[in-house]
Each structure stands twice: as structure tokens, then as C-alpha cells.
């Protein structure tokens, strides 16, 4: 069974149609990259998958593990193993990072019938992951994302992913704003979490990240549709030629009559 099946999805926000007939299938063990210029609908796709309020689906369906994903609240999706690394992680002053992550992990464990972890067990779990992401341990004592640098925020997202071990991880421009060292650390973390029974959907604007996270499939999103799919070589082609050659025809269609 496919892990995720998006069929002819039409979706938007605030009365604006943004995703306009998107079809995509992801199987366990696969890494998919979705690329596209700014404004093509990448974050909207991520928001619809994660269940952000205010987004409406007007047509099509999304099956996750064979059931209709759209019927579920965001927290239920997360407990079933869906994870979104935010393009803009939210700062939450006053909420301690350790407390937050332990609560999140325990929600997932409860859902799966596993015993909750206590503070000491949690510290054990998080120690290795902190090292994997090359973060400082004092970050755990700070408020969620508050005062983190841009790079720390992105690495902290992957730290959360490492703790929650999702079945399907959607990474929304996790590479943006990272220098080359941070990019390598983040990619290394993501690769480390890859398994035969999970999958990753990597959203990016640039090909750069895909030198480090090698996708099995690359899809080009433009104006809410996938206009081309291919193997990893498609990413190199985009890097060399840009998006214009692919979207030219579509752009023409967009011109008002």
C-alpha cells in the first residue's frame, strides 16, 4: 500500500485557489522532492497535509495509510506519524523546549499504546539526537525556538523530527537560510532518519539541498500543479536551466485573454 496518495487535489486559502489538480504518490522507503518557484503552492501543499486551519479542499482526495487524511485533526495526523518541518518555525516564549518535546513524544506514545517516558528517559533519548544535529544542550532549557538563530530553528525542527520518528516527514524549505555547514548537518540528520518503512517529502526552492538529500523522485510544482516529474537528474537540469523552460507554456496559458 502506498503511504500517501494525493489525487487531483484542489485546495486554497482565504477564498483563493492555490493547488489546482495535484496528483502524487509516495511509497514507504522513498524520498520525493517537490521543487518550484516562489508562490507555486509548495507551502500550501504542506499546510493542507498537516491540517492547518483555514485551508479548504474543494476537490480530490488525500489518502494516508489508505485512509482519508483530511478527516483528521492536525494532532491526530501527527500521532499517526505525519510530521511537518515548518518553513517558519514558530517562537513560543515561556514554553520550555524539553517540556514541549517530551509532551509531544508522550502524546505519540500514548496513541500507540506505549508507556510514557519520564524526564530521565527523555534526556537519554534526546542526548544522541542533540549530537546528531550538532546543537548545544542548553538549547533544551530555552523556550521553544525563542531567540534561536535562523539556522538553529531549522536544526531544531529536525531535532524534533528525530525525536518523533515520523512515518512521513514533510520538510518545507528546511534548507532556506542555512549556510553550507548547517545544510550538511541538517541533511545528515534527515538521511540518518531514513528507513525502509518511512518516507520523506522534501520541499525546496533550490537544487542545493538535493546534493545532500538524494531524492528518488523530483516533481516540479508550478501554479498549483505538478508540471514535470522525473528522477534526481531533473534537479540538476533545473539547476542548470532554471524553471523558465518548464513553465513557459504554462505561463502563456495564464495570461489573461
Amino acid at each position: 500500500m502506498s503511504l500517501l496518495e494525493i489525487k487531483n487535489l484542489h485546495a486554497g486559502v482565504d477564498g483563493k485557489q492555490i493547488i489546482k489538480g495535484l496528483t502524487l504518490t509516495i511509497n514507504p522507503g522513498e524520498v520525493h522532492a517537490v521543487m518550484g518557484p516562489n508562490g507555486s503552492g509548495k507551502s500550501t501543499l504542506a499546510a493542507v497535509l498537516a491540517g492547518r486551519e483555514g485551508y479548504h479542499v474543494t476537490q480530490g482526495e488525500v489518502l494516508y495509510k489508505g485512509v482519508d487524511l483530511l478527516d483528521f485533526a492536525p494532532e491526530e495526523r501527527a500521532r499517526e506519524g505525519l510530521f511537518l518541518a515548518f518553513q517558519y518555525p514558530v517562537e513560543i516564549p515561556g514554553v520550555n523546549t524539553t517540556y514541549f518535546l517530551k509532551a509531544a513524544l508522550n502524546e505519540l506514545r500514548k496513541h500507540r499504546g506505549l508507556p510514557e517516558v519520564d524526564a530521565i528517559e527523555f534526556l537519554d533519548i534526546i542526548k544522541d539526537k542533540i549530537q546528531l544535529l550538532e546543537l548545544r544542550e542548553d538549547l533544551l532549557k530555552r523556550s521553544v525556538n525563542e531567540g534561536f538563530s535562523g539556522g538553529e530553528k531549522k536544526r531544531a525542527e529536525i531535532l524534533q523530527m528525530a525525536v518523533l520518528e515520523p512515518t512521513l516527514a514533510v520538510l518545507d524549505e528546511t534548507d532556506s537560510g542555512l549556510d553550507i555547514d548547517a545544510l550538511r548537518i541538517v541533511a545528515n540528520g534527515v538521511n540518518h532518519l531514513k528507513r525502509a518503512d518511512n518516507a520523506q517529502l522534501v520541499i525546496t526552492h533550490y537544487q542545493r539541498l538535493l546534493n545532500h538529500i538524494v531524492p528518488d523522485y523530483v516533481h516540479v510544482l508550478f501554479d498549483g500543479r505538478i508540471v514535470k516529474s522525473g528522477g534526481k537528474e531533473l534537479a540538476f537540469e533545473l539547476e542548470a536551466k532554471g524553471y523558465d523552460w518548464l513553465i513557459k507554456g504554462h505561463k502563456d496559458q495564464l495570461q489573461p485573454a
Binding site: A50, G51, R52, E53, A73, P74, E75, R77, A78, R79, F83, L84, F86, P89, V90, I92, F100, L101, A103, A104, E107, L108, H111, Q160, L164
Partner: peptide
Amino acid sequence: FYLRSRGIGT
């Protein structure tokens, strides 16, 4: 939403 997306209920 950020907290909910991590499995934490409303």
C-alpha cells in the same frame, strides 16, 4: 497549530 502539528491536543 505548531503545537498541534506535534501531536499535542488543542
